[in-house]
Amino acid sequence: MLAVIRYTVPESQSQDFVKQGHAILDTFATQPGYQRGRLARSVDEPNLWALVTEWEGAGFYRRALSAARMVMYPLMILMLNEPSAYEDVYTRDGA
């Protein structure tokens, strides 16, 4: 399952945001069911960021959110209020 949390980050806060993003991914990486994650920035809108993670299932992701809430708390004001959990319907690896 794929989790996407998007943020709107003012340029003046981007360096701190990246550090906090690392801390979130480091926390997630210790949780059961975590597969991989990345912090990404929009190439078209530099204030738009995404924290993208992959999990074995939605239950693992939801439990990890509880475990990471303290490290995620400082960034909550920057989060876009939208659904973040997506189930895989079709995947295909590249050549």
Rank of each mutant, 00 (worst) to 15 (best):
R62P: 09
A67E: 03
K19M: 08
M70R: 10
R41M: 12
T30A: 14
A67S: 11
T91S: 14
I5D: 00
R6A: 08
W55G: 04
V71R: 00
V4C: 07
N47I: 07
V52E: 05
V9E: 01
L51S: 02
A67N: 07
E56F: 14
S12N: 11
D93F: 08
A85K: 06
L80R: 09
T30F: 05
F60R: 13
W55K: 05
F17C: 02
Q35K: 15
D88I: 15
R41E: 06
Q20N: 04
P10L: 13
N47M: 07
Y90T: 14
P46E: 12
L25I: 12
R38C: 10
Q15C: 08
P46Y: 10
G21A: 06
R38H: 00
A23S: 06
R62N: 14
R69M: 08
G59F: 13
R63F: 09
T30P: 00
M72S: 04
Y61Q: 08
A68K: 02
Q35P: 08
D88A: 15
V71H: 00
T91H: 11
L65H: 05
R63H: 13
A95S: 00
S42D: 04
Y90R: 08
W49F: 10
F28L: 05
Y34K: 06
R6P: 01
A29L: 09
A23G: 01
E54G: 07
A50D: 04
S66K: 05
M72D: 02
T53E: 01
M72R: 03
T8Q: 09
L78W: 04
L80Q: 12
L75T: 01
L39P: 01
D44F: 13
S66Y: 03
I24T: 03
Y61R: 01
Y73D: 13
A64R: 03
E82I: 14
I5P: 00
